[in-house]
Write a protein that binds this DNA or RNA. Sequence first.
RNA 1: CGCGGGGUGGAGCAGUUGGUAGCUCGUUGGGCUCAUAACCCAAAGGUCGUAAGUUCGAGUCUUACCCCCGCUACCA
Length: 701
Amino acid sequence: MSSAYQRITVTSALPYANGPKHIGHLAGAYIPADVFVRYQRLKGADILFVCGSDEHGTAIPNQALKEQTTPRAIIDKYHAQIRDCFQQFGIAFDIYHRTSEPIHHQTSQEIFLSLYNKKLLTEETSEQYYDETTNTFLADRYIVGTCPKCNHPNAYGDQCEKCGSTLSPRELINPRSTLSGKPPVLRPTKHWYLPLQNHEPWLRDWILTSHESDWKTNVYGQCKSWIDAGLQPRAMTRDLDWGIKVPLPDAEGKVLYVWFDAPIGYISATRALFDELASGKHQFATPQRSFANAKSDDWKKWWQAPDTRLIHFIGKDNIVFHCIIFPIMLHATGEYIVPDNVPANEFVNLEGDKMSTSRGWSIEMHEYLEDFPGRADELRYALLTNLPETKDSEFTWKDFQAKNNNELVAILGNFVNRAVVLTQKNFEGKVPAAGPWQPQDLAVIEQLKALPGTIAQSIEAYRFREATAGLIDLARLGNKYLADTEPWKVIKTDPDRVGTILHLALQIAANLAIVAEPFLPFTAEKLKKLLGLSALPWDEAGSTTLLQAGQVLADAPLLFQKIEDDIITRQLDKLVAKKKAAELAAQPVTPLKSEIVFDDFAKMDIRVGKVLQAERVEKSKKLLKLRVDIGLEERTILSGIAEHYDPATLVGQQVVLIANLAPRKMMGMESQGMILMAEDKDGSLRLVQPNAVVAPGSTVN
RNA sequence: CGCGGGGUGGAGCAGUUGGUAGCUCGUUGGGCUCAUAACCCAAAGGUCGUAAGUUCGAGUCUUACCCCCGCUACCA
């Protein structure tokens, strides 16, 4: 952290646009960055905050297959969703870009070519598994087979989850593709590698020597571990038709590795921002400050000037890419700067278990926003006080409720409310004039002056939990001041003294408006409106002259609402239900029955019938009694579908039935046939029907 | 298996260069009644994963072991 820095470039990890993002992502890379950036903006720093969607890589086309749509549709959908969620959580990017934009393809190819032309990439041909059904090379994860060590039949190509051994796809016995289920074949393929080991001396000096004391121990430790283990060449290209084309003549069907292009997205976003600022046409840009006289070329100084301080906010899964691979790429070009710090966070667990979108054990950003509209600050606060800064942390709904009720409502909201209500009752809602300070007041003023500095120190050291605690301490100070001075008693004997007390209490509230802004931006906005304040710089915090005597206060709104138990119970139920649904979805389909010959099939007389009447069978939970027209005659058929269909809705419906099944007595009645139903994974039943109306009695062959 | 991070009162966490543990919540008692039964004060509660060692003295250093999390290069 050299003071020679003139400006700060801040990035938050580009979210991968293959699905919704959960509150663990929010806590890891976005909220801390936002707090840092908002604080720096209040300090008047020359700072830039960029992010965007990461839209390449094999997982995108695979998700498209899953959702039966195109990769383009997937990224469009999730890009918009994630961008809107960030906006509603108040994450104030100057631009939220996307890696599918042409300018990003251009930037990535430029950097690739720069490395290539400097002879810093090597070419290698190797044999890779190829799926002939889908015409794709397979990533290790998409190959399964029998583990050579423990004989587990479903080991992945990179690792056996049963015995934990690390594997390569070639070691698997009877490998098969998870895309087609068929055995893959080996095919030679050429790729371009970045020999990381050539940059080891530089890397050691840069990280292990220069950043031994200012990087977080978890980040530093992981980097050291990687470097000590020995760096190797890493493939920078892939066989895939989704991504950025390798800009070389003999590279048909090859794209840049997603981890090559994704971090470059930060740079592309910056280029896009200054292009848009220069042209005045904003498509992705959402500038949060004035970038006066911006020119297209200005992006360079944010990425290439040595007096620019670059900071990457990420989760711990991204450490090696942001501390080793990306810096090597940038440094090797000879044109770019490398990060000053990478304050990676660990993970947030949820109710005792790892958060996982695919397993349904998560709170997705959009889900929270739907269930708690307009209450972004409440989650920001709960996550901020529980950030996984040094180790994995734990989010529970009960804790969320407690943080909201006992801290935001009871301490912060309540203090502001008390100060305002007392002013309205005793001074017609106008800020009273202050008389001479008494020792009691001076002690409070001293603490008030000290707190912003303490908070600032914490933020600059990336200790956001501690910083957030400082914010609440300021409100505590206010509550204690009121409790100690008891203005509701003094008003009977010394109204002037009460004026002084409330004047100071309201100055504390005004300070809260400044100090809260990085952490709780929406609340800070409400506070400013309440107190009639305009935007104030951070350096004004600690002052006792933010409000003028006579200033009229707005009606006291409640800054926060209590959250009752039933809301929390409902969220817990929802979580359990979601997990169950995910488990069902992941459940394998019923295995095939043994083979039959045509004659076995031909024995069945399957026909289409029309339901004429339908009614419940008395004393039966499951049975419906149906009267069905099968062309030749009318039949009575009993069917166990009462839990799935209301009888009235069945009348007139076409059904498929087995007409020559031997009659059978149920509940004292004879059923003359059997209606065919499709059974879903969760056991629910749906009618099997022709997709257009056919005559009753039509045969099914 | 190897490497990295972590194991501190009921819960979540701090603990700088070694000097017998702090914070928030919760609990209990008290005060107050302006306030969203909110606020303020006080107390109880931990021999700091286990064992051994260095030291006058260790949560803090060394060693061994146990547990949790992550990484191990195509899981983003």
